[in-house]
Design a protein around this nucleic acid. Structure first.
Length: 954
RNA sequence: GCGGGGGUUGCCGAGCCUGGUCAAAGGCGGUGGACUCAAGAUCCACUCCCGUAGGGGUUCGAGGGUUCAAAUCCCUCCCCCCGCACCA
């Protein structure tokens, strides 16, 4: 049995004592890799383990390749969730207590101290650090820090960052729409909602139809998502039973539903209700279309929902199935019309106005679609929904507008064009509305949409900035490369991003102290801070000493003794120390790799690019991003609220760090997800134990010089070379799964085969080969399973730490492609014979006769491989008089080889290979074999082809 | 709706970018065998269908197309997952 825990503790202690992972700047080429620091509202789980193990494996790999590697870590505690948790603990919220006591296993006496958010942060920072140490991460802890004003030095850095952004005009103030609790008076984030987290916010265009009343202008703002259809309005719809109001809206008089008046009061509208009445009051009146000037009649419609947008709807029956159905219904309903004193002939005479040319449809797509789906009346709501969806989609994507002045413009473009034109002329307004009704805050109130002012934004929409971000991205490596498209799309799409709020932990905006910089905005360039963090920690530099000018010098200016002198005086930091910081930054920057899980692509990782290009010189722009996928647990998504979580630390305690590391690395690659299965982990543990025992055994073998190797020995060394080559290639691209397959499984399988092939042998050659293999294998595995590899490296008598040992490289003299082909040849032959035995059901087989392809067949194969064409190959072959003698046979063979496209031929000595492996083949198939006898048994001889000998079994 | 990514043999998951060597890697599961007093572990074989000589047939979401040749390229359709911001 392997004592995982003892081995892990032993080596973790040694690494730490000897500061193996605390690089000093120097002459060696540097390699700087970071990973998104964790937000510490709880323990890390095995999904996180993936994100952090990848960069560690890469760091270890590059370190062994001779790079000076920096892999630092810090903690993110910015934001409101931790404050919210403290709040909920204080109020003894059962769900929160369940998560912290039962899922995260926080001891009771500590749990109650969590009423203070600072204690939560302290507890989980400590826990996370312990977890990372116990995972064997090669982190340089001398650079550790955490965010927010609780860390004055980092606070000073973020202050500097925001001053820079402000200076460049990239932080701006503006208005913004938010989900809002109208009772409590607070913005609502996703986690503040008990219902409706994913409800969209729609932007309705309000088109102000004009109602003349006693010579006064009153507006009926019809709400629509299709402003272009204003040209096809035939009538208006109001719900006769709903309550409407006449209200003073800013300086105009509007008629809207009572609900709309309430909602609009949050959207920059000063509302004063003058009068309330039922919709029926306006039925039968006439209003004027502000765009076309048409006079149209207001008709009654039950389907108009006063709780959606303004409750005022314009009717476009040619292009809106609902309007069409309702209009046809009402045409037949003379009784209803008479009730409102409307002359039925007026309605009868309403004619549809066609606006959009749509391929596959005639004048009135809505009418056709309704018919097609079998709509009988406006009561067929489901069918009408479907028809609306179909028409909307089709017209939007394929429709062409046909009314001047927009004739010929695609609907997808004309929509915004018309809306903007109307807004400019003051005949249209807009209104935000939820796509669904039930959006409920955690306080139990129905949310509204509010427009807030004075919000600070980072202006990612700035065109010059975008251009620089594009440039940086184009020059970066993205892994996997297939994610680049997403990055590009996000860069284009990003616009103003609110960067500060009034609650939570963080750094204050330097020019507006009541605002706290939010978490996605204070985590974009901290990789630069790591470079100087060691010096700051070492010399105990205080936050107030880190003045903006000092950061300017370190990060943005050229080396200057005079500046250092000057800044030394200003800050009280010795100028040598300032020089040290400057050197660290210049040495380590730019960052080589940024790692994170894929969920951060649309925000953090892209902000990371933007902020770097905004602040730093081009030579310091980041070089690469690698993203990874998530993890599930036994096929299910991990969810702490359901308790379905495996904490990283618990996984380590259960299985050992090396097992967990290797398991996670071997499961999935790049951005695909992995699934943690207990049974498989246990299996892997067994395999790694066997690995340990094998190496231990091989360690006792001496390497003797000058041993004579057999083919199969050299075969194994060749395969080992290949494993080295492929592992290295995979790790260069962060493909940990492929790498682990080559570094472990491939070698294990080859070793099994080798043992089978050499059963009974125990000689110097075998011992030499196995010992050589051990030496390589341990180093290939070291990035994945560093602890047991250190232990094994010691047993192998290696120098120093395996963590710092030289990464293996293929040995020129070990390559032997031919042997690999020969070995495949033997395997194939054994398979063939076994198949014959099973298919032919030969009774009592005694021996197998093997015939290899005659020399001329090889020659023909080589000619075909070269010529790749029947005629050319034949004429080449016929130059040889020997070949001419068997012209027909040659032609047949050439024909067949061409047909089968056997264009890659590497000649081996088949008979030699067979004789070398004769005993083995006989043992495997349980028959005597006779190689190339004189006699042509069973007339099979002629069937022999290159690489495929003929076989006859008797 | 917008944006990104997918649908592969019982399951998970490679391969598809650079068409042929793909019935399609690897793992899991399953079946049989070796070992063992036995179990476990380990090792070996098989695991789409058919087949008394190493072969043949039908597959890679659906339907078309390009090609001597397509899981791989093009078009159309269906289905699924993720993100859409002030939230870490």
């Amino acid at each position: 049995m392997v004592d995982w825990k003892a081995i892990e503790e032993k080596w973790q202690k040694k690494w730490s004592e000897e500061k193996v992972f605390e690089p000093q700047i120097g002459e060696k080429p540097k390699f700087y890799i970071t990973v998104a620091f964790p937000y510490l509202s709880g323990h890390l789980h095995v999904g996180h383990a993936r994100t952090y193990t990848i960069p560690d494996v890469i760091a270890r790999f590059k370190r062994m390749q001779g790079y000076n590697v920096l892999f630092p870590m810090a903690w993110h505690i910015t934001g409101s969730p931790i404050v919210g948790i403290a709040e909920r603990i204080k109020h003894r919220d059962p769900q929160t207590i369940f998560v912290y006591r039962d899922v995260y296993k926080v001891p009771e006496e500590i749990l109650w101290t969590f009423e203070d958010p600072v204690n939560i942060v302290k507890y989980f920072m400590k826990a996370a650090k312990e977890t990372f140490n116990r995972a064997g991460f090669s982190v340089d802890w001398s650079r550790e820090f955490h965010t927010t004003s609780l860390h004055p030095q980092f606070n000073a850095f973020i202050t500097w960052q925001f001053l820079k952004l402000k200076e460049k005009g990239l932080v701006v103030k503006g208005t913004h729409r938010v989900r809002w609790d109208p009772v409590v008076g607070t913005p609502l984030g996703d986690h503040d909602l008990i219902e409706g987290e994913d409800v969209q916010i729609l932007e309705y265009i309000l088109i102000k139809f004009i109602l003349e009343e006693n010579g006064k202008r009153i507006y009926l703002p019809a709400a629509t998502l299709r402003p272009e259809t204003v040209y096809g309005v035939t009538n208006m719809w109001l719900n006769p039973d709903a309550t409407y109001v006449k209200a003073k809206v800013n300086d105009e008089i509007w008629v809207i539903s009572r609900e709309a008046a309430y909602k609009l009061s949050f959207q920059d509208k000063k509302i004063e209700v003058l009068e309330e009445f039922k919709g029926e009051k306006l039925i039968g009146k006439w209003v004027k279309n502000p765009v076309t000037g048409d006079e149209i009649i207001i008709l009654p419609a039950d389907f108009v929902d006063p709780d959606n947008a303004t409750g005022v709807v314009m009717s476009v029956p040619a292009h809106a199935p609902f309007d069409h159905a309702a209009l046809e219904d009402i045409k037949k309903n003379t009784e209803l019309l008479l009730k409102y004193d409307i002359d039925p002939r007026i309605v009868e005479n309403i004619s549809y106005i066609s606006l959009i040319k749509l391929e596959g449809y005639g004048e009135f797509p809505a009418v056709e679609e309704a018919q097609k789906l079998g709509v009988k009346s406006q009561e067929d709501k489901e069918k009408l929904e479907q028809a609306t969806k179909n028409i909307y989609k089709a017209e939007f994507h394929k429709g062409v507008f046909k009314i001047e002045p927009y004739k010929g413009v695609p609907v997808s473009k004309v929509k915004d064009l018309i809306a903007n034109d109307m807004k400019e002329k003051g005949i249209a307004d807009m209104m935000y509305e939820f796509a669904e009704k039930n959006v409920i805050s955690r306080f139990g109130n129905r949310a509204v949409i509010k427009i807030i002012h004075d919000q600070w934004f980072i202006d990612y929409g700035n065109p010059e900035w975008k251009e620089k971000a594009r440039e940086a991205l184009a020059n970066m490596k993205i892994l996997p490369e297939s994610r680049r498209a997403q990055f590009e799309a996000i860069v284009e799409w990003l616009d103003k991003k609110a960067c500060a709020r009034k609650v939570g932990l963080g750094t204050s905006l330097p020019w507006d102290r009541e605002w706290v910089i939010e978490s996605l905005s204070d985590s974009t360039i901290y990789m630069a801070y790591y470079t100087i963090s060691r010096v700051i920690n070492k010399h105990g530099i205080k936050g107030e000493q880190l003045i903006p000018e000092l950061f300017d010098y370190i990060f943005l200016e050229e080396f200057s003794g005079a500046r250092e002198e000057e800044l030394g005086k200003k800050t009280g930091i010795p100028k040598e120390v300032i020089r040290e910081m400057k050197e660290e930054f210049e040495y380590w920057y730019p960052l080589d790799w940024r790692c994170s899980a894929k969920d951060l692509i649309p925000n953090h990782l892209t902000f990371f690019i933007f902020n770097h290009v905004a602040i730093f010189k081009k030579k310091h722009w980041p070089r690469g991003i690698a993203v990874n996928g998530y993890g599930t647990l036994e096929g299910k998504k991990m969810s702490k609220s359901k308790g379905n979580v495996l904490n990283f630390i618990d996984a380590i305690k259960e299985n050992g760090a090396d097992v967990v590391r290797f398991y996670i690395m071997s499961l999935a690659e790049h951005d695909s997800d992995f699934d943690w299965r207990r049974a498989e982990v246990a299996k892997l543990k067994g395999q790694l134990e066997r690995f340990y025992e094998l190496i231990e055994q091989f360690a006792s073998y001496e390497i003797r010089e000058g041993v004579k190797l057999k083919d199969i020995d050299r075969w194994l060394l060749h395969r080992l070379n290949k494993a080295i080559y492929e592992t290295t290639k995979a790790l260069d691209e962060f493909r940990t799964r492929t790498a682990s397959q080559w570094a472990f499984y491939s070698i294990l399988n080859d070793l099994k085969w080798y043992m089978r092939r050499t059963e009974g042998r125990d000689d110097d050659a075998k011992r030499y080969v196995l010992r050589s293999l051990a030496d390589v294998w341990v180093r290939l595995m070291a990035p994945f399973t560093p602890h047991i590899c250190e232990e094994l490296w010691q047993k192998l008598g290696g120098n120093g730490f395996v963590s710092l040992a030289k990464w293996p490289e293929p040995k020129e003299e070990w390559w032997n492609e031919e042997l690999e082909i020969e070995e495949e040849y033997i395997k194939d032959l054994i398979d063939d014979i076994k198949e014959i035995l099973s298919v032919a059901k030969i009774e009592n087989p005694k021996r197998a006769y093997i015939y290899t392809a005659e020399d001329w067949k090889w020659k023909i194969a080589e000619i075909v491989a070269q010529k790749k064409d029947f005629k050319a190959a034949m004429s080449e072959a016929m130059k040889d008089p020997e070949m001419r003698k068997k012209g027909k046979e040659v032609a047949n063979l050439v024909n067949r080889l061409i047909k089968e496209r056997v264009f890659e031929v590497k000649r081996i000595d088949e008979e030699k290979a067979l004789r070398e492996s004769k005993d083995f083949i006989e043992k495997e198939i349980g028959l005597e074999i006779i190689i190339n006898p004189e006699e042509d048994k069973g007339g099979k001889k002629k069937q022999a082809m290159p690489m495929k000998p003929a076989v006859f079994i008797e």
